[in-house]
């Protein structure tokens, strides 16, 4: 299945919860913002929201400094 991640299409093998996507990509949950199909998904919902074919995902991963 194809998922639009940060503006480009990525091939994912199966549908999966956002929590699994975050884990398998090594993101630090304390420093990321997840937007799924135009809606911000808070950490408490990462396990229940499932990534499906044609979904749009925005992952903003912040680093310190300012």
């Amino acid at each position: 299945m194809k998922v639009n991640i940060n503006g480009s299409l990525h091939e994912l093998e199966t549908e999966l919860p956002i929590s699994e996507f975050i884990k398998s990509n090594g993101f630090d949950p304390r420093k990321i913002v997840i937007e799924h199909n135009g809606r911000i998904i808070g950490k408490s919902n990462w396990k229940t929201v499932i990534l499906r074919n044609s979904d749009h995902l925005v992952v903003l991963s912040f680093v310190g400094g300012g």
């Binding site: 304390r30 420093k31 913002v33 912040f62 310190g64 300012g66």
Partner: peptide, 10 residues
């Protein structure tokens, strides 16, 4: 300065 605060405001 902190990434956690940047996330919170975003």
């Amino acid at each position: 300065d902190k990434a956690e605060d940047k996330k919170m405001l975003a």
